[in-house]
Design a protein around this nucleic acid. Sequence first.
DNA 1: CACTCGTGTTCGAATAGCGGGAACACACTT
DNA 2: AAGTGTGTTCCCGCTATTCGAACACGAGTG
Lengths: 257, 257
Amino acid sequence: MTAHSDHRPVETVETAIDLLGVLKQAGRTGMGVTEIAAELGLAKSTAHRHLQTLVDRGLIVRAGDSYRLSSWFLDYGIHVRNRHPLYDLARPKVDELAAETDEKVWCVIEEDDIGVHLYGATGKHSVTTHARVGNRTPLHQFAAGKAILANLPDGQTDRIIDGHGLSERTPQTITDPGELRGELESIREQGYALNREESVPGVHAVGAPVRDEDGRAIGAISIAGPANRLRGELLTQELPDLLLGAVNEVEVNLAHA
Amino acid sequence: MTAHSDHRPVETVETAIDLLGVLKQAGRTGMGVTEIAAELGLAKSTAHRHLQTLVDRGLIVRAGDSYRLSSWFLDYGIHVRNRHPLYDLARPKVDELAAETDEKVWCVIEEDDIGVHLYGATGKHSVTTHARVGNRTPLHQFAAGKAILANLPDGQTDRIIDGHGLSERTPQTITDPGELRGELESIREQGYALNREESVPGVHAVGAPVRDEDGRAIGAISIAGPANRLRGELLTQELPDLLLGAVNEVEVNLAHA
DNA sequence: CACTCGTGTTCGAATAGCGGGAACACACTT
DNA sequence: AAGTGTGTTCCCGCTATTCGAACACGAGTG
């Protein structure tokens, strides 16, 4: 039960991770040894040696004199996704919902107190937000996240709110702890969460939690679309009904697995 | 221009990578400190320290007393995929082909002398092979790979054949260098490659390369299906025609980007 | 054509930090 | 209550990491 471990880390590994982070930002173009060394505050020789070992192990590739991340990460990343229990269970339902509603549908999971976009399906008229598979988003900022946050074990919700704070994303984002707790209470009552431009201006969403046998949320599914289309009865009745039906099916399958 | 670097690697980083590899194999369940230490031949304290730094940096998560890979890898992996030039260009065509043919369609790229499955679309009657996004496969073992192999710069093809060898996957896999070179020659002539149960028994496929301005293959698209459905004119005429049309469009878009 | 500035690469030496082992705490069995 | 299995901590020795300087190479540029 440690909030933050002060134990001395393996510094060499940390620099390697930092290096990978820098290369991620560099994107497809990649970066050269000198530039990387400067960015990390390392000697060129050190950066060079790190890069060589990472190339040898296949984590990065070298094209000319610039290095970039390799598809090693794709391999590991997809592996992580495929092995998540919700992936196989939720994917067909997410596809179904997207086809029925023509909106963007997401499956989100909770990991380490934040929300991770596990799988998304695109309907015909879907809005294209900047959300991507793998994206990490604070739970209080969006419908699926709030649905999860409202159904976590007692202590965890408080720890997240108090520990991480409530960062603002749009003017509508809930940043007041008291307000959020009230919202979470009503989410628990009605079974689903709404998001009215709290994460992206002009976008509304509905989210419902996927709970395990003990009622703990392990993830959520959400439907998102343009604010002027998702409103009134559609937003507060029809879509929640549809969503809750789908989520319920997922929960049943989850229990039997 | 080094085939294999004998330069002394950063061993600490290597053990960290090994550790991640072990955790990948462990899958969703994860592993404990003692087990990991035993697997890697490390002292428990060492394994413990590595695990803590990886947790601190978010690469792995701890649930109870077992560690597993986190969605950090999904984030990085999707990032790598999205930034590949072929991803945005080929995806719509791959979806289209899957819808038209009802078969499994893959976009494969070459990286570091091997084939990587970048994106796949599933048609209504698609076979489910064990291929997954991120999977790495020797180029000589499948249609898309052979299509790439036939259109690489002179030296590279030879280096791959001679350097990596021609591993067998099914009894039909081409393992003779001479035979393969002949096959590659005819692939260059007709513009597409066939795969008759060379990677999966009972599965046939057609693959065509995506080339850049200089004619170098940077990837390929393939259509795969059951052997008893993909045969005769369909396999040697209709599907190749369809595929070459799609690939050509991708190439045009690639040149204009 | 030489000269310079920019790369990436290599080498040796100093020391910081990695790794190991033993002792500890804790939980669960018996 | 003793026993076995975890994960955790501490400290010391020695190795492996790091740095800086020197080297090689190419592309501009006068």
